[in-house]
């Protein structure tokens, strides 16, 4: 199969993730969309690694996964904390930085 198809898939996933981040209000969904973008990036890295025949891209993909895992831990913790204090997981409610 043509490896470039993975790139198209990655671009599609990234776009879905980006649009999701911008249009959805639920913090959990937004979070999932971010994960989607990260993994789209991973897919791209792995694909290029395959195309170019070296392992650098795959190594970087591992790093990304580690970072993403950490981010999920911290991010979910924040979302849970916010949900507990305000009974809402809508990110538009958390707009206090304006002032």
């Amino acid at each position: 199969m043509d490896p470039y198809n993975y790139l198209y898939l990655a671009a599609l996933l990234f776009t879905i993730g980006a649009v999701g981040v911008v249009v959805r209000r639920n913090a959990i969904v937004v979070f999932m969309c971010i994960e989607l973008m990260l993994n789209a990036g991973n897919l791209t890295l792995v694909t290029f690694s395959r195309i170019n025949g070296d392992l650098n891209g795959q190594v970087v993909a591992f790093f990304t996964m580690v970072v993403a895992a950490c981010e999920v831990v911290v991010g979910l913790a924040i979302i849970v904390a916010i949900y507990r204090s305000r009974r809402s997981a809508s990110i538009d409610d958390a707009s206090l930085l304006k002032r």
Binding site: R25, I91, D92, S95, L96, L97, K98
Partner: peptide, 10 residues
């Protein structure tokens, strides 16, 4: 600087 995370992301 609206304070909306989504607009920053956009």
């Amino acid at each position: 600087q609206s304070g909306y995370v989504r607009s920053y992301a956009a």
